[in-house]
Design a protein around this nucleic acid. Structure first.
Lengths: 208, 208
DNA sequence: GGGTACTATAAAACAGGTTTTCGAGTTGTC
DNA sequence: GACAACTCGAAAACCTGTTTTATAGTACCC
């Protein structure tokens, strides 16, 4: 590389991403102002835009790089006797991480759905590991393709619940409720009894 | 009302919303420029902002007012022998409506997740009727509370699939795939045989 | 008809993201 | 050391959403 040192460049990059995370954590996507990033890091806006295509891209890149959404995926297989339980336990951690930093979570979701240039390639990096872990939680002995499909469906429910929480200002608890409901619906072999806080009600045959 | 006629006001409002829809259909949320709305309608920006809190609010209001996302909910109960089939058929119509107008669909989803002032109250108006119809498709004889929960889960899957389509530039077919998969996972009583185009694979007991 | 209370318009102003321009540094090569 | 190729920073410019200000217009009430 010519013109500057690679380490200095990496350092600048990291400083910019750190500042972005800090600002977004305080004020959401709105509070993440490029001017402030410039002020905090001494990196000029022209340079920032050489690294990142948009401020959304900057934020998502920062999140992807520190695996924020995953809430430290320590790889420990969650305990729990049923797949539903394990899935619920697994997702509780990232859910708490997100609801614990509401502005950052909102900023992240807005950035992810903004359609801004640069974000699309990073989405898989954030989403896919969690899908894989979910599949593993469903069947610790080695998930089948069908388990992966189930995991993906659960991920979608989780994502939609997060969006609902951010936009429609639902309670953070509604996320867990949505995940628990879906996990039971998808994974419980024989419904009929109350379990967890899920509002599972009387069941009747669905196809008369 | 004082200062202006109610009908003139309603006319202005409608013109603005129509212009917004037209512009968003051509160029997405980016292509919906307030300046252009002003140029097309002769309504000043100050007036537009008296009616709508933000351009996202304007778009969502326009969509909500014409029930766009529902693809004309003619209320006809979908035919199909199983609940899964009926749900799949029901959602195909709005999915086609959205994928048929990709820029507008993208704009709609971005606006819905933007967190801008004004949009939140309108979301339910767009979402809830479709949930109700889905529940009705699950059990035409009168959905139970559990059916409503299933419908809501399916809605979440559908929504997440739409977002994935818009952001990660997946193929439009992936939306139908996601819905079909989820419908079978959630509603098919006895899995094991291939049906539809779903990639349902070999099944093994999940809780050893 | 005249006053009152609105509402709409036009134009300017403001804000923040993004781009451009230009001058200066920094690195690699000879 | 000198040149080439590249990167960075500072400042201005640009674009577009949003707000403000001043002015004009319209409906209701008397």
């Amino acid at each position: 590389m010519r013109g500057t040192s690679e380490v200095a460049q990496a350092q600048r990059r990291k400083n910019v991403m750190d500042a972005a995370l800090g600002l977004a954590a305080r004020g959401g996507l709105q509070g993440l102002r490029i001017r402030d990033v410039v002020a905090r890091t001494g990196v000029s806006s022209a340079t920032i835009y050489r690294y990142f295509a948009s401020k959304e891209h900057l934020l998502v890149a920062a999140l992807a790089e520190q695996r924020f959404a995953l809430g430290q995926p320590d790889g420990t297989p969650p305990d729990g006797t049923t797949s539903a339980e394990r899935v619920i336990i697994l997702l509780r951690r990232p859910t708490d991480a997100l609801t614990g930093a509401p502005r950052l979570a909102a900023a992240m979701l807005q950035a992810m759905t903004s359609g801004e240039p640069g974000v699309a390639p990073l989405l898989a990096a954030i989403t896919e590991p969690l899908v894989a872990e979910t599949a593993h939680a469903i069947r610790p002995t080695g998930p089948t393709p069908a388990d992966h499909e189930l995991a993906r469906t659960i991920q979608r429910v989780w994502f939609a619940a997060l969006v609902g929480w951010v936009t429609a200002s639902e309670t953070a608890d509604s996320i867990n409720h949505a995940v628990e409901t879906a996990a039971h619906q998808l994974l419980d072999p024989n419904p009929g009894q109350e379990s967890q806080s899920t509002s599972r009600t009387t069941t009747a045959p669905r196809d008369p």
